[in-house]
Design a protein around this nucleic acid. Sequence first.
DNA 1: CGTAAAAAACAATCGTGACTGTTTTTTATC
DNA 2: GATAAAAAACAGTCACGATTGTTTTTTACG
Lengths: 215, 215
Amino acid sequence: MNLKTSTEKVKAQSGRETGRQAQKSASTRKIIVEAALSCLIRYGYANTTTPVIAREAGVSRGAMMHHFSNRLTVIQAAIEYLHEKRLKAFRRAVANLPKDQPQLHDGLKAYWKHVTHPLYVAFHELTVAARTDRDLARILGPAQEAFYDEWYRMAGELFPDWQKDPASLELAMDLVNTTLEGMAIRRLSLPENPGAEARLFKYLEACLAALKPAD
Amino acid sequence: MNLKTSTEKVKAQSGRETGRQAQKSASTRKIIVEAALSCLIRYGYANTTTPVIAREAGVSRGAMMHHFSNRLTVIQAAIEYLHEKRLKAFRRAVANLPKDQPQLHDGLKAYWKHVTHPLYVAFHELTVAARTDRDLARILGPAQEAFYDEWYRMAGELFPDWQKDPASLELAMDLVNTTLEGMAIRRLSLPENPGAEARLFKYLEACLAALKPAD
DNA sequence: CGTAAAAAACAATCGTGACTGTTTTTTATC
DNA sequence: GATAAAAAACAGTCACGATTGTTTTTTACG
């Protein structure tokens, strides 16, 4: 705002989506939302309070309350942000798989990478908290289901010939789902055991190969 | 304990293990501890506060604080109680299995019953909370490891001929562990899907049968 | 009568939402 | 184009409720 530029006139054109304060507002909101996710990961849901988030974001609590009227609103924004980010990252990973002949190994690894990502911890915190928090559950539930739906859909696209045997495919999906998420959650509370993890991973891969109908 | 017996005097002798007050004290402590577990299950760890526990137990908070000097002490007692109860229940279940020829199916079912028990939810709440609570982790960690150690030990006893192939046994244990716990945790946050659960369960059973060395 | 259990009262801290004031940007008017 | 009005971003403070741990009082048993 201190530099005079000829492009200043442009702002009036589009209305209010490109203005300076709109930009700044969006930027601050993003900072706050990412701070909220950091807090979920580092301090857990119960300790992700408004003062803690504001401190983590480096803004005053007043500023934060200006953008989000109450605590749950911040959480809601964080959930939406998280949901999009998870979907985007997962789509990217799937897109990078060799399309012509997708390998089970790579797909499995992609999901493993997904559930071992810090953001999954944030999601897990939210999930556990939602069990005893109706308001949170109302917000989280749809995102959760949408993600699984999308995941199932992508898997179907990735292995078209597997869809001839939907029961087998669904079983495989459920197996991957529960096992990898179980491993990821176990990691959070027990000392790591890379050897056991690797063996389990390898075994799971063999199971899938056996389940999958021959090409 | 409502009948006056000549054994009343005994209490003074041994100190304080048999008197009426001691009995009542123990009774109250048990009520409080069980109330704490109920709260964990119904309200989650963060909402398991001292007023809530006391209300659930039907005692005044002052009475509760008389028995447990602070909140974490109540939680600690609940963890010990829970640990013993889990071990006892699991030992009982294992003892009821046909000793001569233990069936994989029954063992699997026993563990499944274990992880779908409400007390497992309490344990899960504690586990998640411990991730971001050092004090809680210090208390919970040992119990957690002890339980798994005991579980592995019992499985080894139950399938002695499997111990000839320890790698295979450990893999099977890890598989059961992560998958069933993953299923149980998934249950807490997603709408139930009995069909999928049953198929997964059955598949898991087949995997174990294949892993197990022939008798 | 003395002691332990139970209840109640207490002070201190923390999180929340609402409120007030300040600065900066946008909009409107001449 | 300059200036006034409006709106938004931001900061700080306040009161309320809840939780925690401590202390004091009452009750009941031995």
